[in-house]
Amino acid sequence: MSEKIVTLSDATFDEHVKGSDVPVLVDFWAEWCGPCKMISPVLEEIAEEQAGKLQIGKLNIDDNLEVTRRFDVMSIPTLILFKDGEPEVRLIGAKPKGQLLQEIAQYL
């Protein structure tokens, strides 16, 4: 995994997401989810390319039910973009890189 991606947990979520100077794109994922695997390399690329402008965080839903429930995640992959700690946009399902970037562009 790219060094630019941060692994989030129930315990560290608020600290990372609320304390971030840049928007945080959180990937709600699990080991058993095929489409999550598909977008993983896309997120790695975005993390490298947008370093300094966007933080990417990964939250394993199996291990972190509290945050998963708090944001009513009911389908994975779900990506939620947080700005100043608040959820701004939610993307459900695997999407191509171009489309992902387009949908979050206005928040960067």
Binding site: G34, P35, M38, I39, V42, G93, A94, K95, P96, K97
Partner: peptide
């Protein structure tokens, strides 16, 4: 390209 409706890699 990645997608969740069966038009994706794999």
């Amino acid at each position: 390209e990645p997608s969740s409706n069966s038009d994706q890699p794999g």
